[in-house]
Amino acid sequence: MRIVFIITGLSTGGAEMMLFKILERLDRNSFAPHVISLTTLGELAPRIVALGIPVDAVELEPGLPSPAGFFRLVQLLKRLKPDVVHTWMYHADLLGGLAARLAGVSSVGWCIRNSNLDKEKTRISIRAIVGLCALLSKWVPSQILSCSEKARQIHVAHGYAAEKMVVVPNGFDLSRFKPDDHARRIVRVELELDVDTPLVGLIGRFDPQKNHAGFFEAAGLIHRQMPQVHFVLAGKGVDWNNPALKQAIDKAGVLSNTHLLGLRSDMPDLMAALDVLASSSSYGEAFPNVLGEAMACGVPCAVTDVGDSAYIVGDTGCVVASMDMADLAQALVGILQLPAAERLALGEAARTRVANHFEIGQITRQYEAFYADLASASSAGHGPH
């Protein structure tokens, strides 16, 4: 089956990495994938090409797309003659979905990766695209894959065709993300800390929805109870050149206990080094990948009840109300103060939960079933190639 994936861009965000993980594991005897980026190639393109998968970039400008660029996309799809087109994220759903239909593709799937459409938090341009997609959802896509139940509910409430929605969660590689005592040691050596220093992590790009300011509010409260705890943060924009972060750290009084590491390429080691992972997100998360990654490393999580976070963690960590940083601090302290054997057991339960519900091989099979359904649901398919 020829399948074309259309995505807004190929930088290293959560949606882009999830697409990469699916491409790595797709059954190539049954599926011939091809990737199109609406904008530029980005950091992930060479890694996709290295899998033997062709990648094209349509080079649309951010903002209002040009008719010429859209026409290039239609022509490219006509040339590729895919059996199925799967678009990822709003711009790709809208432009890629319409282009696929104009190119004569009858099996089109959309993909939703966001769970917040609040007026205050969402750019007006995004809300406009979501409104258009809601109208078009009745006829452009045959099915719509959502990475979270919360995202499904929110989009149905905004007018998306409920009967077309399918939920497939994100998946995690348990051979990459795993408990690792060596990683615990080497990360502490790098940070010049004692081998038994407790580490609380917050991993994610600097973005209002991640609520770094709230995290440091919680960090200040933890510091007063457990001054030996250190806070490790990594992600794009999470470094000492960020004045907003420095201000939050100073206000919390945790300057000497905080490590801002910026973008890291050794995420499995960093995750495995933590004693507990925090997610202080205030809105917008659909399915935070960092939770599955930490849990796969045997690291318990304390999270705000945003998106599917509570479902992901289940009974293997703590869930507090969104924006309640005092409760988040207490949840983190509660996990840190567990006897070592109990914290280890909680981490093992977290890894087992990922293995049972979110293992990447199982999730890839669910994606493959989604594509098979898309192809067979199409009444006027191209037939087998």
Rank of each mutant, 00 (worst) to 15 (best):
D275L: 01
Y311W: 07
R224M: 07
R224Q: 14
V306H: 07
G253C: 05
G298E: 04
V320M: 09
N289A: 02
K246G: 05
M226T: 02
S282N: 11
M271G: 09
D250N: 09
V229Y: 15
L261P: 13
Q247P: 01
V306T: 01
S281Y: 03
T304H: 00
V306Q: 09
G284A: 12
T258N: 03
L245G: 06
T258W: 07
I222R: 08
Y283H: 11
P268H: 01
I249T: 04
H259S: 15
P288A: 04
H259M: 10
L255F: 06
D250Q: 11
G292P: 05
A252D: 11
M226K: 15
T304D: 06
L233F: 01
G235S: 00
G235V: 02
L261A: 06
C297P: 13
H259Q: 11
L263H: 14
A278Y: 10
P227W: 02
M323I: 08
G262S: 11
M325W: 08
M226G: 07
A278R: 12
L277D: 00
P243T: 12
D275T: 03
C318A: 15
A234I: 02
A248F: 13
Q228K: 14
G317H: 00
L233N: 05
G292A: 12
A244Y: 12
A321Q: 09
D315T: 05
G307W: 03
V313E: 10
E293D: 08
M271A: 13
C318S: 10
A278M: 04
L270R: 09
A302I: 00
V299Q: 01
H230Q: 15
A248Q: 13
G237R: 02
G314M: 06
Q247K: 13
F287K: 01
G237A: 11
R264Q: 15
G253L: 03
V238E: 14
D308I: 09
L260W: 05
P243W: 06
V319D: 14
S281D: 10
K236C: 08
T258G: 13
S280Y: 15
Q247F: 08
D305N: 06
D308V: 00
D269H: 13
M267N: 03
M323Y: 12
M325S: 04
S279I: 15
V238R: 13
A234T: 00
Y311K: 11
L274Y: 03
M323A: 15
N289M: 04
M295L: 09
I312T: 05
K246A: 06
P268W: 06
D275M: 06
Q247D: 04
D324H: 11
G284V: 01
M325N: 15
A234E: 05
I222S: 04
N241T: 14
H223K: 14
V320C: 11
L274N: 02
N242G: 07
A286Y: 04
V319A: 01
S265M: 14
G307S: 11
P227H: 02
I222H: 01
V238C: 02
A294L: 00
R224F: 01
M325V: 15
D239Y: 01
D327M: 14
D250Y: 01
S280H: 00
R224V: 03
Q225K: 11
T258P: 09
Y283A: 03
K246N: 09
L263K: 09
G314C: 07
P300T: 02
Y311V: 10
V299C: 00
T316C: 15
G262W: 03
L233Y: 08
C297E: 13
G314F: 04
R264H: 09
M267P: 12
V276Q: 12
V238G: 05
H259D: 10
